[in-house]
Every structure is written in C-alpha cells, then in structure tokens.
C-alpha cells in the first residue's frame, strides 16, 4: 500500500499526473480514431445487420461506467478506512463521468433494442440494474452536494458507494441468473465473431483511457480549486 499513499499525496499526484495525462490523452485519441475506423470497415452481422456498429459504442460505454463506479468504490474504501483526503476528491471527481457513460450505455442500448427487440426498453434484470447504476451515481453526487460539512458528506457518499457495489455483479451476471432479452456475455466466452473483436477491444480501451484522462484532469482541477480556497481564506483572516 505504500506506493499508493505516496501518490495519494496531492503534490506527488500533481507531478505524476502532469507526466501521465498527455500520454493517456494521446492514447485515447489514437484508440478512438483507430477503433472508429475499424468499426466502420466491418461487414454487417448475419443476424443484426449494420446495427452491429452499435456494439462499438454501447459496450465501451457500459465498461467505462462500471470502471468509474469501481474507481469510486475503491476511493470510498480508502477514504473510510484510511481517511485520506485525496481519495474523497478522487471519488467525487469520477462520479460525473460515470453518470455520463452510464447514460450513454442506456441511450445507445435503447437505440439498439428498438430494431432488434422491437422496443426501446424492457424492465428486465440487465437494463434495470444498469438504470440503478445511473441512480447510484446521481445519489452519490447528490449526497456530496446536499451535506455542507465536507467530512460528513464524504463519509455518507462513501457508504452509499460501497453499498451500491453489490449492483456491479448483478449487472454482470444478470444475463445468466435471469431470463432476459439482453444477449449473454460474448467476449470472454469467445462467442463474438473475430472480425468484431479488434474494433470492440480498441474502442473499450479508448473509452477507459478517456475516463482515466478526464478523471485525472478533474482531480487536478479540484486540487487547484482547494489551493485557491485556502489562499482566499488566509488572505481574509
């Protein structure tokens, strides 16, 4: 854990992220560019036709949303157990991006569902648990904004985030545990046609890198905002 605490120091984080951010930003642009190019060159699926193109934005958005929630959960655990202030900043910084990726997963999924299932929405386990993920992000952000005392807000939000972790395996295994319109897992099981696998993995990596880049930038922004606030308080005293 020592390495983690070394970089959990705001000063060290600013130095490390100053080096990492340009690298992840360029890697994001490359992955999304190559992934989109490859995506628009694949042949139509024999069953789903050209709607297979939705695979390359729907699944990456879902994966990025779950990664964002995972990041918040880890930060929450670090905050509750070790009470490190940077973990609160990091958890809070990830939430807006997680909410956007979740909303994108739901919207692109609905636009895929209509031509394939004949409906934009069904209250099945996968879709409902994913909608719950969106509400967890909203609830987490609302708690931070509703409680004035930052220490209490961080604790309440962290507890909510950790309770909500139970939803992640439910999302993942919902297609196995219950009867659902949503298709089952196809990447690890090798059911996906190889021609679609490369653009999908590259787009997934692109979305994850985008999340990591924006997350780092947001943490850096909040650190600067806190420094500015401290300076203002000092000058006012």
């Amino acid at each position: 854990m020592n390495w983690l605490f070394r970089y959990a120091n705001p000063h060290n984080f600013m130095r490390l992220s100053n080096v990492l951010l340009p690298i992840t930003a360029v890697a994001t642009a490359l992955c999304l560019g190559v992934g989109l190019y490859l995506g628009f060159t694949v042949p139509p699926d024999y069953q789903q036709g050209s709607t297979v193109l939705l695979l390359f934005i729907h699944v990456p958005a879902d994966v990025a949303a779950e990664a964002a929630y995972g990041a918040i959960a880890i930060c929450s655990l670090l905050s509750l157990v070790w009470r490190h202030p940077l973990s609160d900043i990091a958890g809070r910084a990830a939430a807006p991006f997680g909410a956007v990726f979740t909303a994108l997963g739901l919207i692109t999924g609905a636009l895929w569902g209509k031509p394939m299932w004949g409906t934009y929405w069904v209250w099945d386990a996968r879709l409902t648990s994913f909608l719950l993920l969106l509400f967890l992000f909203f609830g987490y952000m609302a708690l931070w904004n509703a409680i004035e005392d930052e220490v209490r807000a961080a604790r309440a939000a962290a507890i909510l985030a950790l309770v909500g972790v139970v939803n992640i395996p439910i999302i993942k295994f919902s297609v196995d545990w219950w009867s659902t319109l949503h298709q089952g897992e196809s990447i690890v099981s090798g059911k996906i046609a190889p021609v679609y696998l490369a653009p999908l993995l590259i787009m997934m990596l692109g979305y994850i890198l985008l999340f990591v880049s924006l997350w780092m930038l947001r943490i850096r922004t909040v650190i600067l905002e806190r420094r500015a606030r401290t300076l203002m308080q000092r000058s006012a005293a």
């Binding site: 036709g49 050209s50 709607t51 994108l104 919207i107 636009l111 895929w112 031509p115």
Partner: peptide, 11 residues
C-alpha cells in the same frame, strides 16, 4: 438501421 445508428453515434 441508420435511423438508429447515427443518433447513437451523435449522442
């Protein structure tokens, strides 16, 4: 299917 795919990419 363009009527579903393009809005998804646009959003």
């Amino acid at each position: 299917y363009g009527v579903y795919i393009w809005p998804a990419y646009g959003v």
